[in-house]
């Protein structure tokens, strides 16, 4: 009897905790949207300067690493594609494969994963540290809304920065494939460019960009949510920072799946 009670009680508590988490995420989402969309029209202002600073940090400063990784991935894809395509003497189709895979899938995904590690974790750590040091409380007592002050600028910056970096990533990933194919696998330069241009459609680009916007939203909200969850001291900050990266990557894959399916079946 007690074992049964404990089991049912445990399940109930776990469910309630999950629901509570969902409720808190909803509050965060509504709060962000209010301070982003509604509040500026009521004369409560938007911190544009802070958003620009975050944009530079999330976007501009992540360009070298995103560029390097995407170049290498483009080259790797070309090699892997050639491994199969060469058996059919179809190496010129590497261009199609690399181009479509980069634009539809890999460039947005790699950018999102790199920015999760680089900026999503930084958001969680920053907010977590501020919470531990009572800085969030200080904002509250001053009558400054923490969502307005901390979350909205980061949200704006992230949603603007990730699509920009993704465009760069697409271009460089194709460039990586191009360089390896033409210089190592001796594919004709003109043919590669022609095939790439022929394979890519506007729809592919739209798929990639749509995903990147939603990845940005996921990265920002997960980072913020985990940051606000921090309790205790430095250990809590470390735990939630790690957790923000894991959660964020998980949801990025889920969003990726949903939008891939949507564009595959519906559009």
């Amino acid at each position: 009897m007690t074992a049964l009670t404990a089991l049912v009680g445990g399940a109930g508590r776990a469910a309630l905790n999950q629901l509570y988490g969902v409720a808190r995420v909803c509050v965060l989402i509504v709060d962000t949207l209010y301070w982003l969309v509604a509040a500026p029209f009521r004369g409560k202002g938007l911190r544009i300067r802070a958003a620009v600073e975050c944009f530079v940090e999330f976007g501009y400063h992540s360009m070298p690493i995103v560029g390097l990784i995407c170049f290498l991935i483009g080259a790797i894809m070309a090699m892997q594609a050639s491994y199969q395509l060469a058996r059919f003497g179809a190496t010129q189709y590497i261009a199609n494969l690399v181009g479509v895979a980069a634009v539809r899938e890999l460039a947005p995904l790699m950018t999102a994963i790199i920015l999760t590690g680089r900026s999503g974790s930084a958001i969680a750590a920053e907010i977590g540290t501020m919470k531990v040091a009572e800085e969030i409380d200080a904002l509250d007592v001053m009558g400054v809304n923490p969502t307005k002050f901390l979350v909205v600028p980061k949200f704006l910056a992230m949603v603007a920065a990730i699509p920009c970096v993704t465009v760069l990533a697409m271009f460089i990933m194709i460039l990586g494939g191009f360089v390896l194919s033409t210089m190592v696998l001796s594919v004709d330069v003109g043919l590669y460019i022609e095939n790439t241009a022929g394979a890519l459609q506007l729809k592919d680009f739209a798929t990639g960009m749509t995903k990147s916007v939603f990845f940005a939203i996921v990265i920002c909200w997960v980072g913020v949510y985990r940051g606000f969850q921090v309790e205790g001291g430095a250990e809590g900050v470390g735990k939630m920072t790690t957790s923000s990266v894991v959660t964020s990557i998980f949801f990025i894959i889920i969003v990726d799946l949903v939008f891939s399916a949507l564009f595959y079946f519906a559009v």
Partner: peptide, 11 residues
């Protein structure tokens, strides 16, 4: 106004 124990200045 409030003065926090650890001052809570924005670092």
């Amino acid at each position: 106004g409030m003065c926090f124990q650890g001052s809570a200045l924005f670092n």
